[in-house]
Amino acid sequence: MLAMILKRLLVAIPSLIGVVIITFLLTRALPGDPAAYFAGPAATQEAIAQVRAKLGLDQPLPTQFMRYAADLARGDLGTSLTTGQPVATEIRNRLPASAELTLLGLIISVLIAVPLGILAATRPGSLVDHACRVLTTAGVSLPVFFTGLILVYVFYYLLGFAPAPLGRLDVFFSAPEAITGFYLLDSLIARDLETFRAALAQLLLPALTLAIFSLAPIARMTRASMLAVLASDFVRTARANGLTPFTVVVTYAFRNAMLPVVTTLGMVFSFLLGANVLVEKVFAWPGIGSYAVEALIASDFAPVQGFVLTMAALYVALNLVIDILYGLIDPRVRIEA
């Protein structure tokens, strides 16, 4: 088991190196002179030359890359032009907001999608099945920012159930003491139920938006792989040996069907992290996505680059977790490692 995890870790390393190379190349692909770009629009020729030397842009490309990598190793992602703050600090401060939102969205969608997919697969042609099919096809067609806006219109403007889509907490509340950085958990740790409720109210709509978005691929894959497994030879053997439907579906079919679903989770994460940016913009969520969007509009490249790198590193880590999870379910992977 440990050997498998170590092996997976080793596999993740080339991915990380690839990520660093690509983000580095993206910086160098900047149109025009990066030094002039980083020096700002009002800089003189001298100032630009200074910046160029400071950034090491007068060095050959491999040297520049080594320097870039060394900066990264020290946790230095550069400085934002607009705020003057180090990018790494900003991202660290904003990351919990994004993580809390994304995780809650994912949990909601898995809790709905997996049982839905299983129900649809065990009763093909039933109402649940049709509902599942419509929902999955419609779900992947919904632009996530559009879903968010509709939810805001219905639950905030029309019904007044939800608070204004402006950030993590209503202005009348103060943030709980940061332990995990997740407001829900921190407020529970501080035993502050009022804040918990307020944080949850803010979180619910954006999380739901993400959930609706990621529901479709998970439910679709669960249904398809459940159908395939239920039609397989070993399920027929289990049935021919008189095992109860519960044992057949849960012990025999479900675990096997989860393998492709776990793999799909990787793709879902990719979508979720991207959709996160759009949802944060709709709900004015102070996460790393809206940080990047603000920087993009201001043509401030260092935060964008830091953001892309952070997201990619996160995604590589998530894929690692998925691989390990897969190994836990499937002995074939575990033993061959």
Binding site: P14, S15, L16, G18, V19, I21, I22, T23, L26, T27, A29, L30, P31, F269, S270, F271, L272, L273, G274, A275, V277, L278, A292, L296, F301, V304, Q305, F307, V308, M311, A312, Y315, V316, N319
Partner: peptide
């Protein structure tokens, strides 16, 4: 395979953002 894996190591929309930001 390596090229595809490297691209896949990014959340796709995020990578698209980065590319458009860098290329113009």
């Amino acid at each position: 395979g390596r090229l595809a894996d490297t691209i896949m190591a990014f959340p796709l929309f995020v990578l698209a953002m980065g590319i458009v930001a860098a290329l113009g």
